[in-house]
């Protein structure tokens, strides 16, 4: 059976052909099945973010292949990558990255609207996700009026609202206190369980790493320890 996501001999070289050329990732191989809840850990600079960016099609691969749902994403053009991200992947960024001009509700329904959901479908889904994440009272607020923890919950809501097949979360708890971090991880774990969404997140916080069912450790962009 084909796996949900396959990373095959992937390397990423920064500043290729220039003075500061360096490897971000070197010959990474990875296989991920649908519905997994995986953490990618490792020290700063180990390539966690780079790997997530490559899987999400946010950055280009120097060599190798990433096969997502049978599609080689390295062969897609910018428009096809946009469509892939819109339809299949939800992103949670370390710095929340909400759209400052939109309210929490508008941020959450944004990707759904991109995908063509009706306003009624958007409203129902936003309310459902907001209830699960405990942010119902925050929906009409602008990001600037939310705390870091609240913003990150809205960001998670945005990522899951359109029911993507994969959520990529880059150090989602890095800017949160321990309690908020654990709460957020519990919520993500619940969404993974209840909605069957595959979740890959990066972290170097042991408390957060413990929540994952599978851990992949990167070191210097090329060492890989995979443990279940």
């Amino acid at each position: 059976m084909d796996s949900f996501l396959r990373v095959q001999s992937v390397s990423k070289i920064f500043n290729r052909g220039e003075a500061g050329e360096s490897f971000g990732l070197k010959d990474i191989n990875l296989q991920i099945n649908k519905g997994e809840f995986i953490v990618i850990s490792g020290p700063s600079g180990s390539g966690k973010t780079t790997l997530l960016n490559l899987i999400g099609g946010l950055d280009s691969i120097s060599s190798g292949k990433i096969i997502f749902n049978g599609i080689d994403i390295s062969s897609l053009n910018e428009t096809e990558l946009s469509d892939l991200r819109r339809d299949k992947i939800g992103f949670v960024f370390q710095a929340y990255n909400l759209i400052s001009l939109f309210s929490a509700r508008e941020n959450i329904e944004y990707v759904m609207k991109l995908r063509g959901f009706s306003q009624n479908e958007c409203d129902m889904r936003v309310d459902e996700v907001a209830r699960k994440l405990g942010i119902v009272k925050l929906l009409d607020k602008l990001p600037a009026n939310l705390s870091g923890g609240e913003q990150q919950r809205v960001a998670v809501a945005r990522a899951v609202a359109s029911k993507p097949e994969l959520i990529l979360a880059d150090e989602p708890t890095a800017n949160l206190d321990s309690r908020s971090a654990l709460e957020l991880m519990d919520m993500m774990e619940r969404l993974n369980r209840e909605e069957g969404i595959t979740v890959i997140f990066s972290s170097h916080d042991p408390m957060v790493i413990d929540k994952a069912k599978r851990s992949i450790i990167l070191k210097d962009g090329h060492s890989l320890i995979d443990s279940f």
Partner: peptide, 8 residues
Amino acid sequence: ILRAIGTK
């Protein structure tokens, strides 16, 4: 960010 989350 808009592009990252799938905006054309």
